[in-house]
Design a protein around this nucleic acid. Sequence first.
DNA 1: CTTAGGG
DNA 2: CCCTAAG
Length: 442
Amino acid sequence: METDRKSHSIKKLGDVKCQRVDESIVPGLEDEATKVEHFLSEPKTEHVSFDGILCFEKENLERHLKMEDYLCAFDYGWKLSSGGLDSINGQGGDDLKLEEVLDGLLDEDFLLDTEFPEKFSEPDCGPCEISNVCNSSLECSSACGISESSIATIRESNSKNGVLGNRVGCDLRNTIRSKFRSQGPVTDTVRPTREHMQDLDESDDDEKPLVSPILSNQKVKSSIKVTEGDTVLRQKRLRKPTRRYIEEFSRNSTTENSKHGKVQTQEEHPQVPSESQLWRGRRKKIMPKLVEVPLPHWNIFLVSVQEFESDSELSASESEDEDKRTKRSKTACDRRKHQRAWTLVEVIKLVDGIAQYGVGKWTDIKKLLFASSAYRTPVDLRDKWRNLLRSSSAQKDNRSEVVNKPKHPVRPLPKPVVHRILELATIHPYPKVHSPKISAVH
DNA sequence: CTTAGGG
DNA sequence: CCCTAAG
């Protein structure tokens, strides 16, 4: 009995990304949920209670790692052999989409896997398994099967294991978790039905993120079901506007009035725009789509403010459905800006871009390689590069000197990537970042 | 507006 | 990531 379920689960975990969750595997869900939870959070003592599961945990982890390893290699090799990212971007459409999805897939793996970095360099993945994993992953990638099943699993895990949920790390996890908590005990029989899936797919279409649509969907659903707790939660998640914006805003609305060095009345300022508006305003500056004419700063600002006003009108209106919808999509777009973990693919893309265009051509790289990802401003790219340099050089140091990596479970980058980074670093020295460089100033 | 640099 | 100063 028990063993049956276990083996079933084992088998399933390997295929979880490629299968639609249906009735036949529901029995295994409980175990699996535990496992997923296990992946999501770092190993904890609580898991001892599931000692039966722990037995084959390693096995699964290895498998997991193998796939990841392969995917990295695959992605990397693929890009190289396809003539760099140029071709990818040039063709747009399919390739890009595939890349995005892959990106997402990697993202998950990247995030989920927290340790065992040494696995990376081990070439222990057998070809048969590889090709299997590869094919299925890719297939289901194009069919967006990843997000579906992953989401479904995560959902389940959350409704059952909500107890574990004070682990920080991924926005997605936190939000979903909290949402589920707010929905109360196990009474909700939320199961990944077709509707959910389609819903997710839809929102996945327009902006292709793996995270935000989930969040937004959760939000919508819970706001329908729960009316009280939701508002609280949502407000909790909203980020306060920055000082600058508030200042600008008050300057605009009150016609030159205040000079608060620090405006701390933000909390009750009725007109204080939420984070979403802030971001929209920001985005306008960065990638003006509607406004092509160069505008003075304050003018741009007025635009965003106006948008905000119309938005508030909307929320004031009674058609809650539509309001929620528009709001949802917009906030979903904007919210994700806040923190988005860099995926391996993105890193590689960035490195490639730098190799092509050189360090400092951030806008070029952004336009050409990150055109599809509205987040990732040129500044972000630069920041990331800065961090990459730092981390890669640090990694190099650690490799050569101290072999004990007891404290930092930080996922090191795949070898080839680090290599390229280091190469690029020596070619185009990023000003002021390279610390390990010996000051050869005599 | 874009980059660099600091927080 | 965010913010600001400087070309």
